[in-house]
Design a binder for these strands. Structure first.
Lengths: 238, 238
DNA sequence: CGGCGTATTGAACGCAGTCAATAGCTGTGG
DNA sequence: CCACAGCTATTGACTGCGTTCAATACGCCG
């Protein structure tokens, strides 16, 4: 009941992603791949590994991270069903980031050769690949602005609204959802500590902006949150 | 003598960029475009504008920025000769960022139609477009990690090393170069204030890491700087 | 029940921001 | 030629937001 994963599996086919593209192309891509099941904690791909495949996330949730030599790590984003994983390494030799399954994930591995062959004959697929790459870059720009300019409350608001928007794009409620990640992971993504994230959640709850009970979140005042997170990341320009 | 722009014009043909691609493809792309000259302060493209063209920077320097509704702005990166501008908006309706010339810039405007036609018949060009997009995304990941995890000194060190690496890739000295941007712009890029940037420069100079005289920078101890900026942004993994 | 991971909350500290004063460089006009 | 304005950079003093350290509570699963 509380798990959204199963629903996602059913919904991903019609609301494959927030990409402004036809579902057709993504299904054609999926058709040339092979399904894999990943348990929580296993990697989709790892930094330094040779690039061989792109992955389509069908169900579950993953996080992308960059691990520094000194051990510090930065979470670069969270992926949802319908997202393509590893696209940024196309025509590079190796992966530069690591993507880890946060729970049981169903992915479709699309070997690079098959993807290129498909892209060669299919204009829709070519278009989708560029769209997704460009979209990822534009989203990253938004988060860079968030980390560069916003204070803790604004970052958390932008984060919640981003999740809301992405859930909505997949046919789920934009007001009520389950967080798949810990406070520490949210902090690691937003450049904050887990304590600060927790404090902001509490503050938001006291001011009536959200209702938060551990991983369960309800956004009570989307407008107020949006006012806090004026940043572009929450409301993409394109 | 102190201006590097002229030299860049001569050098761009053989060291077109830090992209791991043949110069051939970039020249073929340039061939289908039309040269334009932009004075300092004018825009290459503006957020919200319809996407029509990609631009190849031939000489000069530009900055990409995201302007929030509340007026705050974040600099997302600085472009150097050989860089492609606007690629992230391919197959999107509009541009989401603004790119501004920081001095006299020579760019080649490549209309989208011409670029697509070229990409259709030329595998090298297709490959280059994916490489550049992926590279931009991976660099952005590095800067996101910098803003999320690094303190002021580490960020400035990473910034200087990134410039150094990019100048070197274009055939210039990696140890001695001119900054094209003000302290305020560096700060805006790194999520710091201009005062903090200035203080870090002074501290680096006192510790013998750099020699800095207004816009002129000499990196005296690249190793020490690299130790500060362990982050991936300065030393790409791929 | 007890142990472990996760979350909340408090108190004190410190890094970077803010405010402010000064200096230096550049170009302009008297 | 110097005076002056405007922009850029440097440096100091103080403040404050978010971190750090620490204690406690909560939930889940053996």
């Amino acid at each position: 009941m509380l798990h959204t994963t199963d629903h996602v599996v059913e919904n991903v086919l019609r609301a494959s992603s927030d990409a402004p593209s036809h579902a057709g192309a993504i299904e054609q891509i999926a058709a040339v791949g092979r399904a894999r099941l990943l348990t929580a904690g296993t990697t989709v791909h790892r930094a330094g590994e040779l690039f061989r495949s792109v992955f389509l996330l069908r169900s579950g949730a993953t996080k992308r991270l960059l691990i520094q030599e000194d051990g510090r790590e930065q979470i670069l984003g969270f992926q949802m069903p319908g997202d393509l994983i590893g696209l940024e390494s196309i025509h590079a030799r190796t992966h530069s980031t690591t993507v880890v399954a946060m729970d049981l994930c169903s992915v479709i591995e699309i070997p690079y050769d098959a993807l290129e062959a498909l892209a060669l004959e299919n204009a829709e697929v070519r278009k989708l690949l560029f769209q997704r790459l460009g979209m990822a870059l534009r989203e990253e720009y938004g988060w860079m602005a968030a980390l560069g300019q916003m204070n803790a409350e604004e970052r958390v608001a932008a984060f919640l609204l981003d999740l809301s928007r992405r859930f909505a794009a997949r046919g789920f409620s934009p007001r009520r959802f389950m967080l798949r990640m810990t406070r520490a992971e949210i902090g690691c993504f937003l450049g904050l500590t887990l304590e600060t994230v927790s404090r902001v959640f509490s503050r938001f709850q006291r001011s009536g902006l959200i209702r938060s009970d551990r991983r369960e979140i309800e956004l009570l005042d989307l407008n107020a949150l949006a006012r806090l997170a004026l940043a572009t990341s929450a409301a993409p320009l394109n």
